[in-house]
Simulated assay, not measured.
Amino acid sequence: MEVEYTKDDCIRETKEHIAQVREFMVRCISELVDRALVHDNSKLKSPELEIFTKYTPLLKDSTYGSDEYKSFLQGMQVALKHHYANNSHHPEHYDEGIKGMNLFDIIEMFCDWKAATLRHKDGDIRESIEINQKRFGYSDDLKKIFMNTVEKLG
């Protein structure tokens, strides 16, 4: 027996689908807003605050990924270990690195990278994406998605 599927059925099911997608997108937005409100709060407390107070001006005048930059990171290990343990938007938070992250972690990480480039005199988000591909071992596909996002974000 053939069941009749009408335009009204199609419209009703399509509207249900649209509502479901909308709900999932609102959940995603809510998650991102929650993250935005607490981003890097651990830097405002010990042991991070003292170490970041010392090193932030030094990092500002260094080139991301340079030997000088890496030497500053070595001096910041106590703060960085604490920071990575308490902030899931860093690949170092996970045993699997970037492969352990979820999409929300990736979005927050990308926004963090973009904002970090504004703190360096010679900051360049495209260059950071290149350096970080080597540093974190992500695919060319993810690198392209990051580059496309730079274009969209401006």
Score class of each variant (00 low, 15 high):
residue 6 T to Y: 06
residue 7 K to E: 14
residue 8 D to M: 06
residue 10 C to V: 14
residue 11 I to N: 03
residue 13 E to R: 11
residue 13 E to P: 00
residue 17 H to M: 11
residue 20 Q to I: 08
residue 21 V to D: 02
residue 24 F to W: 13
residue 25 M to C: 11
residue 28 C to K: 08
residue 30 S to I: 09
residue 30 S to E: 14
residue 33 V to L: 09
residue 33 V to D: 01
residue 34 D to T: 03
residue 40 D to L: 02
residue 40 D to E: 12
residue 42 S to E: 15
residue 47 P to G: 04
residue 47 P to I: 01
residue 49 L to D: 07
residue 51 I to S: 06
residue 52 F to V: 04
residue 52 F to H: 09
residue 53 T to Y: 10
residue 53 T to R: 14
residue 55 Y to C: 03
residue 55 Y to R: 02
residue 55 Y to E: 02
residue 56 T to Q: 12
residue 57 P to F: 10
residue 57 P to M: 07
residue 58 L to R: 13
residue 59 L to K: 04
residue 61 D to W: 08
residue 63 T to N: 05
residue 65 G to E: 03
residue 67 D to S: 09
residue 67 D to E: 15
residue 68 E to K: 10
residue 70 K to P: 04
residue 71 S to Q: 09
residue 71 S to L: 07
residue 74 Q to L: 11
residue 76 M to W: 07
residue 78 V to T: 12
residue 78 V to I: 13
residue 81 K to V: 11
residue 85 A to L: 10
residue 86 N to G: 10
residue 88 S to M: 03
residue 89 H to W: 09
residue 90 H to R: 07
residue 90 H to L: 06
residue 90 H to K: 07
residue 92 E to C: 06
residue 95 D to Y: 04
residue 96 E to A: 14
residue 97 G to M: 00
residue 97 G to L: 03
residue 99 K to Q: 10
residue 99 K to L: 09
residue 99 K to V: 03
residue 100 G to K: 09
residue 102 N to H: 04
residue 104 F to M: 05
residue 105 D to H: 01
residue 106 I to H: 04
residue 107 I to M: 08
residue 108 E to M: 08
residue 110 F to V: 05
residue 110 F to W: 05
residue 114 K to L: 08
residue 115 A to S: 12
residue 115 A to W: 05
residue 117 T to I: 04
residue 120 H to W: 04
residue 122 D to N: 14
residue 128 S to T: 13
residue 131 I to M: 00
residue 135 R to K: 15
residue 135 R to F: 07
residue 136 F to H: 13
residue 137 G to F: 02
residue 143 K to V: 03
residue 146 F to R: 00
residue 148 N to E: 15
residue 150 V to H: 01
residue 152 K to P: 03
residue 152 K to M: 12
residue 154 G to E: 15
residue 154 G to P: 05
